[in-house]
Every structure is written in structure tokens, then in C-alpha cells.
């Protein structure tokens, strides 16, 4: 495998081309549109904040854009003491 890598090591230009193609496909689609990640982040935090007190710093959002699909990871640390008392019915 290492030997194969050695022979395959042409240069970094193909990597540059592929990265640009993926990035620009995304950017062209999203030009003049609100940033989807920002919208999702705000709405999701708003929903959770209705039920628990969440510190903005405890919310980690990561995005990984692929050529055809993307993943959005939302990692929220909810303090055990932060659960609001359920409203009286």
C-alpha cells in the first residue's frame, strides 16, 4: 500500500480541484440565501430553551459538507439542574 502511494503521489492539484468543485457547488446554491446552518442552530436552540436552560457556549454545532449530502451535528450539554419545572396545568 505504501509503495502504491509512492507511485500515485502525483501532486496536490487534483485535491485542490475536487475541494473547489464541492465548495463552489454549495456556495453557488446558497448565494443570496440565509445561511441554513445559522437558521437551524437558532431554531433548534429556541425549541430546547423552551424546556431547559441552555448556555449558548454548551452548544456545539458541526457541519460536514459532502458532494451530495451533508451532515449537521448538534451536541448540547444539558445540565441536570437546568430542567425547568414543567408548567402547572
Amino acid at each position: 500500500m505504501k509503495l502504491l502511494d509512492f507511485f500515485k503521489r502525483g501532486g496536490s492539484a487534483p485535491v485542490a480541484r475536487e475541494r473547489l468543485q464541492v465548495l463552489l457547488a454549495y456556495e453557488r446554491n446558497n448565494r443570496n440565501q440565509p445561511d441554513l446552518v445559522a437558521v437551524l442552530r437558532e431554531e433548534i436552540i429556541a425549541v430546547i430553551a423552551k424546556h431547559v436552560q441552555v448556555n449558548q457556549d454548551d452548544v456545539k454545532i458541526t457541519m460536514d459538507r459532502g458532494a451530495t449530502t451533508s451532515t449537521l451535528e448538534i451536541d448540547i450539554h444539558i445540565p441536570n439542574a437546568g430542567i425547568k419545572a414543567s408548567p402547572a396545568i
Binding site: 502525483g10 501532486g11 492539484a13 485542490a16 480541484r17 473547489l20 468543485q21 463552489l24
Partner: peptide, 16 residues
């Protein structure tokens, strides 16, 4: 550098 694959080629830039 383009010939050695170290730099985007003209074809790459135009295609993108």
C-alpha cells in the same frame, strides 16, 4: 508545477 500536478491546470480553472 502544473505539469507535475502541483498547481491547478488551466483546464481545471476553466472547468471550475
Amino acid at each position: 508545477r502544473a505539469a507535475r500536478g502541483e498547481m491547478l491546470s488551466i483546464a481545471d480553472v476553466l472547468e471550475i
